[in-house]
């Protein structure tokens, strides 16, 4: 896995669409700094039925 987004000149249309959404500009891919973000997690197991 490349650690740099160094292929920007060859990005496809769909790649460019995703990249435009990434704000701020894409950071270098650093395997040593993983941030695992779970969006819309199922909180049922934690808190049961939320009111």
């Amino acid at each position: 896995m490349d650690q740099q987004d160094n292929t920007t000149t060859q990005q496809s249309v769909t790649e460019r669409q995703l990249r435009r959404l990434v704000v701020p500009a894409p950071a270098a891919y650093d395997p040593s700094r993983r941030i695992d973000v779970i969006h819309e997690p199922d909180l049922e197991v934690l808190w049961g039925g939320l009111e």
């Binding site: 987004d5 160094n6 496809s12 891919y29």
Partner: peptide
Amino acid sequence: SMAAIVAS
């Protein structure tokens, strides 16, 4: 490049 952008 797709992998790099998904990583971002």
